[in-house]
């Protein structure tokens, strides 16, 4: 008995000394960690959005704590969806359901990444967004719909031919008020990324809605992939719930 106590005593003391000195043995061989589904990550093995121009369910979900993302219902875990993104609560659109599961768009590369999260067990808030955002590249047009009705339409700048705004559906990821790029008072990143720029300005090439100091750009294909929009459009966009679908067409 006393021998066992002594061993336990020694283990505790050794472990604490290791912590105190900052020493530790790396024991990670063979361990796999799940990446966080954020705009900074490129996820491996994710299923792509099968209907990239569909208008979705209108449902958006918010994980109140980190939630494991699966490649298919009951399949292998592939990522973790954190409860916040860029200082905003995470809201992602539901694009498909299965009993006990919801399939959501993810904000990571590759574009059109999706994943399944459990729809049971609590810890997941669900709400409805009546909004839909459409960007028509050729027409250089941004339209906001609410309950199917147009509430605003603006001429915008889209990606230049060498740095096009990526096609398909994504979603409003966050609202940022302090970006340091001189892009206006609010920047609205989406869940998609430039396909031609792996990084831009130190960021991961996230495509966003933002302003532009020179109004003559509106109506032109000149950006690095983002949608440059007038102030009135940004004001309207900043009232649209996060997770709302953004559909970008030719």
């Amino acid at each position: 008995m006393s021998g066992r106590v002594s061993f336990a005593r020694i283990s505790v003391v050794v472990a604490l000394i290791l912590l105190a000195t900052g020493l530790g043995v790396t024991l990670a061989m063979g361990t796999t960690f799940l990446p966080h589904a954020t705009t900074f990550e490129r996820l491996q093995g994710v299923p792509r959005d099968a209907h990239p121009f569909a208008e979705g369910t209108g449902a958006v979900v918010h994980p109140t704590s980190s939630r494991v993302v699966y490649a298919r219902p009951g399949g292998s875990p592939m990522a973790v969806l954190p409860s916040t993104q860029l200082g905003n609560p995470t809201w992602v659109p539901v694009v498909e359901t299965a009993p006990g599961w919801v399939r959501v768009l993810l904000p990571s590369r590759p574009n059109r990444a999706t994943g399944w999260i459990s729809g049971t067990g609590g810890g997941l808030q669900v709400a409805r967004t009546p909004y839909l955002i459409k960007v028509e590249r050729a027409a250089r047009r941004l339209t906001i719909f609410r309950s199917g009705r147009v509430i605003g339409r603006w001429t915008v700048a889209v990606g230049a031919p060498t740095t096009p705004t990526p096609l398909g559906r994504t979603f409003l990821l966050a609202a940022l008020s302090k970006t340091g790029q001189g892009f206006g008072s609010v920047v609205l990143p989406t869940g998609t990324h430039s396909k031609s720029l792996d990084t831009y300005g130190g960021g991961p090439g996230t495509v966003a809605f933002h302003g532009w100091p020179d109004k003559t750009v509106f109506g032109k294909a000149v950006s690095h992939g983002c949608v440059r929009a007038p102030d009135s459009a940004l004001s309207a966009l900043s009232r649209v719930p996060l997770g709302t679908l953004v559909i970008i067409t030719r």
Partner: peptide, 19 residues
């Protein structure tokens, strides 16, 4: 699902976007 999702509250976070 009937409850409407909340409007966002802009966060003071700097993310360099594609421009």
């Amino acid at each position: 699902v009937t409850k409407e999702a909340p409007a966002p509250v802009p966060a003071e976070v700097n993310l360099p976007v594609a421009g």
